[in-house]
Design a protein around this nucleic acid. Structure first.
Length: 205
DNA sequence: CATGGGATTGACT
DNA sequence: GTCAATCCCATGC
């Protein structure tokens, strides 16, 4: 099959995700997410791993966590608080329950569609939170288990100007366990990051 | 089969 | 600052 044909010339491939989840969480900052014509640049992530109790995978392999323990480079989408769909990128080898939660985007294209879905106009309100960005991009639970290389949700390398963002780290948001781990990564000073904003001086890497 | 909690958000005091 | 909305699924009876 030499006609592999650059089937997905744009998207990151599975080997990108087949690395330690902390490294992937850091490297996804600045990368682009696309779903059906709406897209944005990742400005905030969090890492989760089956070795720590804040992760859904901590309890082991169940119907709910099946995707988390599957191969790297797939979308793990789950419902939070009965309302919101949250998007994660599955990492590390198959059999390891690790994923990066995509927490915020800076909108790039399809912004009018995002405004209609969100019922809001300010750019900073469209994707500045994990439940907000899935609503803005139209991502639902149906995308759980789908490939982030072939879609419908795809993640690609940083657009021009986003190759080397300044990243700050801090504790993860909205969890009650393993709160000491500083596994949250944000673009320093970016207005599209969810609150609470990281403190200046938390330089990372 | 019943119950409870959760990687959140927006409306309200 | 507080709080309800609302669904999946793990757990326990």
């Amino acid at each position: 099959m030499r006609t592999q044909a650059t089937a997905t010339p744009w998207a990151l491939t599975a080997d990108f995700y087949d690395r330690p989840v902390l490294v992937v969480a850091r490297d996804l900052i600045g990368c682009a997410v696309d779903h059906a014509g709406t897209s944005g640049v990742i400005v905030e992530t969090e890492a989760y791993h089956d070795s720590e109790p804040a992760s859904h995978a901590f309890i082991g392999l169940t119907p709910r966590t099946r995707t988390l323990f599957g191969g790297p480079g797939h979308a793990y989408v789950y419902r939070s608080y009965g309302i919101h769909a949250l998007l994660n990128a599955v990492c590390e080898p198959e059999g390891v329950g690790a994923a990066v939660l995509i927490r915020a985007l800076e909108p790039s294209s399809g912004i009018e569609t995002m405004r209609r879905r969100r019922g809001l106009t300010r750019i900073e309100d469209l994707c500045s939170g994990p439940g907000k960005l899935t609503q803005a991009l139209g991502i639902s639970l149906e995308e759980n288990g789908s490939s982030l290389a072939s879609g419908p949700v795809r993640i690609g390398p940083p657009p021009e100007g986003w190759e080397n963002p300044s990243v700050v780290s801090g504790p993860r948001i909205g969890i009650s366990k393993a709160v000491d781990l500083r596994w949250r990564f944000c673009v320093a000073g970016n207005r599209h990051v969810s609150r609470p904003w990281p403190r200046p001086g938390d330089e990372h890497g």
